[in-house]
Design a protein around this nucleic acid. Structure first.
Lengths: 223, 223
DNA sequence: ACCTGAACACCGTTCAAGT
DNA sequence: ACCTGAACACCGTTCAAGT
């Protein structure tokens, strides 16, 4: 698609590859992120990529790290631990939500990058502050991070990104299907149909469920 | 690997294909589940699969449905809504936990299958009972289901399934890496290192975090 | 109804070689 | 240091054909 000159003038670089990979994942989904495809976009042979990355997996490592590094952790403060925890979770969510196709990559790579370790350290610290023992803090903290990824990943339509018009149509079809279920067996699904179909688009969905997580941490025995 | 006779004597069938696909995903991960690979295991041409499934995606639909159908929903009872909700979430988790590689498939397919709609109906019903309005129930319910999938998916080592010996070694290496971080910057990560590495293996991890979700539902404003 | 054969356009990756 | 060329073993899928 692009000749050598416009994607990156001059040389290929890790950074340039990662940036275009993110863009590709956003527009066409993770399965479009391909060594060969990226090479083509940079006007270069597929094998050129192997000078910059050991293999595809380390490209994905790079993508995950690139995202995690963008998280702006709020400074530690005197606020209650639950307020601080919420802010950290929201800071993480803010960064990955625009990249649902890449969210899943973070799942098993948070503790791999320095920036991810910093997030983990802060979350664990607040959980200790809340009264959790180290072991429990690890279990709960792990789950909290995974949950944020899940929220970001809960993109309405998986795979290729569709645009407005298309998306509306997909929603209409899904809603109609749910609403045509037998009312005697599925009253609650039918009542919730509009929200079930579109809720992952609303900011409300994210705020509400981050709050659910924080409330859950508050409600648990600290052992 | 298998000649036509032993995988399934007689004929190929949707069921037989799905069963072997589940086994394959369990032993070698989702990326090993391939039309060609499955065909080979059944001693059949890849194209034979296309008589039983429209394409690979509908094979994956079938896998997801197969799992979801196995969920044994507890009967509605007079127990508190939160106890019932916990039991439903645990019933779902029990089924998908043995198949971490397949868990992700359920994310966007629960509302596609009849059996998934039944789970959704029950969860939504209990949330209504707890005082949630239909819209909020949809938002929270969607997240709860996604979270269970996330828990099941939070398999320690992604990809190919490793066995005991190997796994221990992986754990040792990861723990050592975390414990060798600078103590001044990562005190909590270091203290939690053993649990961070192995917690996804323990039953405790799952029970604790299901409880976190239920407590979260209790702590949220019902709007 | 159920399956094969040949072909197409894709993958990731290795290895040797060029500048 | 950075990239190419040719090759290998894989993918999913279509289309026409066999029984």
């Amino acid at each position: 698609m692009a000749k050598r000159s416009d994607a990156t003038r001059g040389r290929l670089s890790r950074e340039a590859i990662i940036v275009s990979a993110v863009a590709l994942a956003d527009s066409e989904g993770l399965e479009a992120v391909t060594i060969r495809r990226l090479a083509q976009e940079h006007g270069v042979t597929p094998m050129a990529m192997y000078w910059h990355f050991n293999d595809k997996d380390s490209l994905l490592d790079g993508l995950a790290e690139h995202l995690i590094e963008a998280v702006k952790l709020p400074e530690p403060s005197d606020a209650d631990w639950d307020a601080q925890l919420r802010d950290i979770l929201l800071a993480f969510l803010t960064v990955i939500r625009p990249h649902p196709a890449l969210a899943g990559l973070a799942l098993r790579r948070i503790l791999a990058a320095e920036s991810g370790l910093l997030i983990a350290e802060r979350v664990l610290g607040l959980l200790r502050q809340a009264g959790y023992a180290a072991g429990r803090a690890a279990e709960v903290g792990t789950f909290l991070i995974c949950s944020i990824v899940t929220l970001a990943n809960a993109d309405p339509v998986g795979g290729p990104h569709r645009t407005g018009e298309d998306l509306e149509q997909v929603f209409r079809v899904k809603r109609a299907r749910l609403e045509s279920l037998p009312p005697s067996r599925f009253p609650n699904v039918i009542a919730a149909a509009p929200a079930l179909v579109t809720c992952r688009e609303a900011d409300d969905f994210f705020d509400l469920n981050v709050e659910l997580l924080v409330q859950g941490v508050r409600g648990l025995p600290r052992g």
